[in-house]
Design a protein around this nucleic acid. Sequence first.
DNA 1: TTGAATGCAAAATATTTGCATCTTC
DNA 2: GAAGATGCAAATATTTTGCATTCAA
Lengths: 138, 138
Amino acid sequence: MSKAAEILQDYGLRITPQRELIFRLLMGSKEHPTAEKIYQEVSEVFPSLSRNTVYKTLEALEAKGLVKRFNTGESADHYDANTAPHGHITCLKCRRVDDINGALSSIMDELDQKAESSSGYQVLSADLYFYGICPDCR
Amino acid sequence: MSKAAEILQDYGLRITPQRELIFRLLMGSKEHPTAEKIYQEVSEVFPSLSRNTVYKTLEALEAKGLVKRFNTGESADHYDANTAPHGHITCLKCRRVDDINGALSSIMDELDQKAESSSGYQVLSADLYFYGICPDCR
DNA sequence: TTGAATGCAAAATATTTGCATCTTC
DNA sequence: GAAGATGCAAATATTTTGCATTCAA
């Protein structure tokens, strides 16, 4: 059984070929694909795949916390199977989205605390989005 | 001439009653309304207002940097006339969105630098979104 | 008076829903 | 066998586009 399938099982999700491939693709990608991108890739393997299944699958994965959905200012949402807290950076020219892992973790706590004390909210999570120009576009 | 109208003029935007009211409403609001919310409020004053005008107006304001558009995970985008860098915090229960002003500014630079050196991007801006439970919902 | 703003209708995009069929457990 | 997943079609929600009319400068 694939790693993806194991995780699905651990989280009480049924293993179907479509679902496993969608999740596997997300786990193995650093590209934060949109639902449409996933649909296009997976439907090459399962030509009968419907977008509905992609959305339902992503919804199920999101509900279990296995993927995270986010938006960088474009129309379509992006999905990410990297569930460790991390930031994202979007290139304003080519629109690619990269992860910022680790580098920020030391400041995150401080950030959360300041947000909490200044807002009066109980802070549960934070999303950090950076915008700029990627190395390739410069 | 209203403050809002003055700013519109300064930025080379024509002053129309609809546009002025939309911008005035955004400047005077701490509620980060959606396009639909703005449409509903402004169409009470101008019953013939079309959504198109709201979107076009927001687009013009955004292009001049007078308002900022963002998304907190819901379907509709929010608009904010507070253009100074600041964070947002969304209540996961009631979905209200508050500003986090000032409190974070001291860390922002450090954050940008870490993002820049870890990603190789040239960082131009950052958006910080916090999620939690607001004082009223606790 | 001229270029931009408005309003209406229709289109485009992304996502969700209803439901019948099929599959996993 | 039952609960859940899939796929198709249609619906919804948000935003954009085309175009004729009106208005601000």
